[in-house]
Design a protein around this nucleic acid. Structure first.
Lengths: 194, 194
DNA sequence: TTCATTATTTGCCAAATGGCAAAAGTTTTT
DNA sequence: AAAAACTTTTGCCATTTGGCAAATAATGAA
């Protein structure tokens, strides 16, 4: 299969957060590498220090971990036009406690630590843009998680359907159930009731 | 009562995220204003554009909102040595959807938008420090909220006791219950069972 | 101190969710 | 196509949590 990626999504996304001239855009494109993941593949794994940041061109990733009971918990899903990385581990260069896994086949644009350093050193607006993106992504996560605690399972599922209308049927029930904080069988029953 | 605030906590906190010389420290101290809040007072309110950022010297704030059912939900608590602000509304200068309220009597150090702009323009490291602080605070919120979804109410309550050991008995049960995502009576029963 | 107000606990019962294991359904491999 | 592996649904019952209202308890005001 031929891979054809214009990186338009990436560039347009970055331009939402700051201005870039053509020379800078070209540099960014040169620093980005296309990475195709198959459903189930891991982009990064717990225990390892993340060395790359991914921009999702196409597909869905999920971030997950194992809790103290040994259950696998999906912390959140990340869909296209977003960056994915365990930001804490990446910045501090400490082993991650999370897995980042492809829920569907994905086309990613990845930046290595070195590339990001180069971009930061070369493009004066880079850090500002990245900071805005980071902040926005984190605020969104908080604002999505927070109300979930106050809702019952059915409402959480319905909210998920709104947010990812075409995803629910393409991902294993178990991923979704752990994200919603319920058991797989409960989710199955909730689904049936709708 | 005499108010005596050295601002040491604030300065030490900032120094965790970057270096500052004495001149810069003095400027920061001049820009900060001491604000005392009584238990129950609001630092900022939904519907208004937040004009200040608070550093908590002493005390606890909570961020809360009303959900679609009209229930008042505590989104999170913020304790001393942390900044509190509805960052999204503050940055974008749009009306907040949240209240920030004093759970206990508080001593805050507040910075106005103008002061922050001055600091940003004068202290070259300022933006970097603030970005690190912001990012860390948001990552912590996500990491605290996320596992709560996967835990049952009792575990969530016990976790809260660990995190805020001396707070649980000083705040209305209703605040805590809504934070934990359970009803007041359930929390009362859980408490009893321990 | 007493009254009024507010916060918390409790009883009762209904509804939601969990735990476990078996059955049914899908997908993948051989 | 058949077998194996995996996913989802279902039954059964226990446990948790919610909803509501009344009873207590605690707090604050007069």
């Amino acid at each position: 299969m031929t891979i054809f990626v214009t990186m338009d999504k990436l560039i347009n996304y970055l331009l939402e957060f700051g201005q870039l001239n053509q020379q800078q855009i070209d540099l960014i494109k040169r620093k980005a590498q296309v990475l195709e993941l198959k459903k189930g593949d891991y982009f990064s794994e717990a225990g390892k220090i993340p060395k790359q940041v991914a921009f999702i061109e196409e597909g869905i990733l999920r971030v997950c971990y194992y809790n103290s009971k040994g259950d696998e918990i999906t912390k959140y899903f990340v869909d296209e036009n977003n960056f994915a990385v365990d930001i804490n581990s990446f910045n501090q260069k400490i082993p991650s406690s999370e897995y980042v896994q492809a829920v569907t086949n994905c086309t990613l644009l990845v930046f290595s630590t070195e590339s990001l350093n180069d971009l930061s050193a070369t493009i004066i607006q880079w850090d500002g843009i990245i900071n805005k993106i980071t902040e926005k992504a984190l605020v969104e996560k908080v604002n999505k998680l927070s109300p979930m605690l106050a809702e019952d399972a059915k409402t959480r599922y319905l909210s998920f359907l709104e947010k990812f209308p075409n995803l629910a049927n393409r991902i294993p029930l178990s991923y979704l159930a752990s994200y919603l904080g319920i058991t797989q069988s409960s989710l199955s029953r909730i689904r049936k009731s709708i």
